[in-house]
């Protein structure tokens, strides 16, 4: 019921053991060289050059290869050669499991097919993000996973509206927020009414009624819902080659006054319409480059 990576799927299926998975990951780590390691192995630079690049990266935010080109240590063409070699020699976790004897080729093929079907529900559909916003595929995925989790986890039927750029987030009784850091940073906010919060709480607490629950527990359910969504976003981002760390969820104390989009950020708002006419919002504050 969540975004998974293949090794986790196999353990849950009982197809491989925890020890075998760790053996396969160790093999992967030894085989799949990082750019800096690969470029040295290919004899295109020395460890002294690599140390110079690492030092330069402390004062300028550039990838290793880009910095190597900037310092004239290697050429653009050599960067492409290294990337091609990395791609061609990459050992996937399934192949590593076969190499350590945890799976046969036939089993791998069968489980890959099952995994594809299991994760089909999390493949993004097209969502339009306004032009000029960086990392568009990530925000499409964020909105798409939020919609999917609203259906699957919270059991809410809705119609998503088009994404717009906003300067101020409208006031709502409840706004829960989480921060993203790592290779992508942003703030993720879900604004809901009390009745939508109660729908979410019913689903998270697995109760038919939440009439007697405290406000703390009800609000906490919304925080937990966005925690689940953002954890799955981090998993999906990892599949797309990005590393996202998430901070624990928080409630915004200023939800009743509306929230200004911070300076140097773009506010992406995705309205979500319920069948009874109510609307709530997913908003992402994206830093401008």
């Amino acid at each position: 019921m969540a975004v998974k990576f293949f090794g986790q799927f196999l353990i849950e299926k009982g197809a491989v053991t925890r020890t075998a998975l760790l053996q396969a990951i160790d093999l992967q780590e030894k085989t799949n060289l990082k750019f800096g390691e690969m470029v040295i192995e290919m004899g295109l630079m020395t460890t002294v050059d690599a140390a110079r690049i690492h030092l330069a990266q402390r004062s300028e935010d550039l990838h290793f290869g880009d910095m190597a080109v900037k310092l004239s240590i290697i050429t653009e063409e050599q960067v492409q050669q290294v990337l091609t070699r990395q791609r061609n020699s990459h050992l996937y976790i399934g192949e590593a499991l076969v190499k350590v004897g945890a799976l046969s080729e036939q089993e791998l093929e069968k489980y890959l097919e099952e995994f594809k079907q299991d994760q089909q529900a999390y493949i993004s559909e097209k969502i339009e993000i306004p032009a000029g916003v960086p990392h568009q595929p990530i925000w499409e995925m964020v909105a798409d996973l939020t919609y999917k989790m609203l259906t699957r986890v919270a059991g809410i039927s809705f119609r998503p509206g088009p994404c717009t750029i906003i300067k101020k987030l409208p006031c709502r009784p409840i706004i829960a927020e989480m921060g993203f850091s790592g290779s992508i940073s942003a703030r993720y906010l879900l604004s809901v009414s009390e009745s939508t919060r109660n729908l979410v709480a019913k689903a998270i607490l697995d109760e038919d009624s939440v009439e007697n629950e405290s406000v703390e527990v009800l609000d906490d359910s919304v925080k937990e819902f966005i925690n689940i969504v953002c954890g799955n976003i981090a998993a999906k981002a990892a599949q797309l080659g990005h590393s996202i760390d998430i901070a624990p969820p928080e409630m915004r104390a200023d939800s009743n006054t509306g929230i200004d989009v911070p300076q140097d950020h773009t506010g992406l708002m995705f309205p979500i319409y319920l069948s009874d006419g109510e609307v709530f919002e997913l908003t992402i504050f994206v830093p401008q480059n």
Binding site: A2, V3, K4, F5, G7, Q8, L21, L22, I25, I93, N227, I228, V229, C230, G231, N232, A234, A235, K236, A238, S243, I246
Partner: peptide
């Protein structure tokens, strides 16, 4: 955890 699907965290 909600981070179970993040391979690095799982490992």
């Amino acid at each position: 955890t909600s981070l179970g699907g993040v391979g690095d965290k799982y490992t």
